[in-house]
């Protein structure tokens, strides 16, 4: 089984986010970048599947050379090889088009993404890749099992779960629960040194969207502590201020 795992390079979850002076781009100064956590779940599940059934796990990232430490970490965790499409990701369609173009004709049994990236949270790439390759897309997947040529997937839906059977190949977006992310060990880090990481030039894609600007949310208001004895006041505030009851 050959699996393609799409990984994004995103700011660490504890990062303080700032924008450039014109508010049109992320200010990356001082930011730590990590593998998008949902993509890490997808990668781990891909490794578990190929460890059981044999095969390869290729990771692909659309990004400039600065994303290579993130890709190298994916190799250290256990991916077989890696591809970097040498372009800064502009939007979801750009990224999906590059990945679909790369994957076309390579007969991957499974293409896995995270359900969304934690930076822009677009949650579009999974479905777009599937559409561009004319494959089924299954999003927000909490469990993925493969039996022969069929995948059984469990999806998170409002108030419950949905169980889907789907023939391979398919594109799926991984969510929590699919696998427990692995921490690279020293042997993995050493072996990642010699694993192939190939940079591929991007294809030309029309720009469909343009970022006009970013804005930060209003700073959080202060916490209003209520004494544990004063249930009446809490109820009143939940009603009048929070307006939730």
């Amino acid at each position: 089984m050959n699996i393609l795992v799409c990984i994004s390079n995103v700011p660490d979850t504890t990062s303080k986010i700032n924008f450039n002076d014109d508010n049109k781009g992320l200010n990356t100064a001082g930011l730590q970048f990590i593998i998008n956590p949902y993509d890490e779940i997808a990668l781990t599940r891909a490794l578990e599947l190929t460890e059981k059934a044999g095969g390869t796990v290729t990771v692909i990232n659309v990004g400039d050379a600065s994303t290579e430490p993130t890709i190298r970490k994916a190799l250290a965790i256990g991916a077989t090889d890696a591809v970097r499409i040498n372009a800064a990701p502009r939007d979801a369609f750009f990224v999906a088009s590059q990945i679909a173009h790369f994957a076309k004709g390579k007969n991957y049994d499974l293409i896995l993404c995270g359900r969304e990236s934690i930076d822009y949270n677009g949650a579009q790439v999974t479905a777009m890749i599937a559409e561009l390759l004319d494959l089924p897309a299954i999003t927000i997947v909490k469990m993925l099992e493969i039996n022969g040529n069929t995948a059984t997937l469990e999806r998170e839906i409002e108030g419950g779960k949905e169980i889907v059977d789907c023939p391979l190949p398919l594109v799926a977006g991984a969510s929590e629960g699919m696998a427990e992310p692995r921490i690279p060990n020293m042997r993995g880090i050493m072996s990642a040194r010699t694993k192939p990481l190939v940079a591929v030039e991007p294809i030309a894609i029309d720009q469909l969207t343009e970022i006009v600007g970013y804005d930060k949310p209003k700073p959080r208001s202060t916490v209003n502590l209520i004494s544990s004895d004063d249930v009446d006041k809490l109820v009143q505030l939940l009603h009048t201020e929070a307006k939730v009851i």
Partner: peptide, 8 residues
């Protein structure tokens, strides 16, 4: 690689 070692 050092940074990956440390962070891991």
């Amino acid at each position: 690689e050092h940074i990956l070692v440390r962070n891991s």
